[in-house]
């Protein structure tokens, strides 16, 4: 019983902690969404509305009739077709502090990637991970399909 209580308390603690972490700086926005589009954050699925803010670590997922367009803080653009899953593994855009990186991972589906300022400033720190290969970007427009 005691252990169970500890479990409940820590679940509440970590639960509220992860909600608080939503205060972290956003890395991009949902510019347009059609059909079923979800953002998975801290094990919670949130319906992605137009203008919703995206955070590092978010998994964006479209349903069979869904599609979505995202804009990132460095001006990069990602758009996704139906049945697509992409994780924003890492995003840092603080050139003054030399903190720069953009790593996105496509798990499945179809997506279009238009590079932004990070590719110009730190090309070696921008990449898209796919199940069988890593795509390094030297600009500018890449289409990726993962079965």
């Amino acid at each position: 019983m005691k252990i169970f209580c500890i479990f409940i308390v820590s679940a509440i603690f970590f639960g509220s902690y992860s909600i608080c972490s939503a205060n972290q700086a956003h890395v991009g926005i949902v510019k347009s969404a059609v059909g079923e589009v979800m953002v998975l954050r801290n094990n919670l699925a949130i319906k992605a509305e137009t203008n919703a803010k995206l955070l590092e670590g978010d998994l964006i997922q479209t349903g069979p009739n869904g599609k979505v367009g995202l804009i990132f803080e460095d001006d990069a653009v990602i758009s996704m077709g139906p049945n697509t899953k992409i994780v924003i593994e890492k995003f840092m855009f603080q050139p003054a502090e030399k903190k720069m990186s953009f790593i996105a991972r496509i798990i499945q589906g179809t997506a279009s990637f238009l590079s932004g300022q990070l590719v110009k400033l730190a090309p070696d720190l921008v990449r898209i991970e796919t199940p069988y290969a890593t795509v390094g970007m030297r600009g500018t427009h890449v289409l990726i399909k993962v079965d």
């Binding site: 590719v119 600009g139 500018t140 990726i144 079965d147």
Partner: peptide, 23 residues
């Protein structure tokens, strides 16, 4: 049958960049 397809296309301004596909 499972595969990953990576295509380089011109950006909206008509310029084409360069990519690397590594594994």
């Amino acid at each position: 049958a499972k595969k990953t397809m990576v295509a380089l296309v011109p950006d909206p301004d008509g310029k084409t960049g360069r990519i690397t596909v590594a594994n």
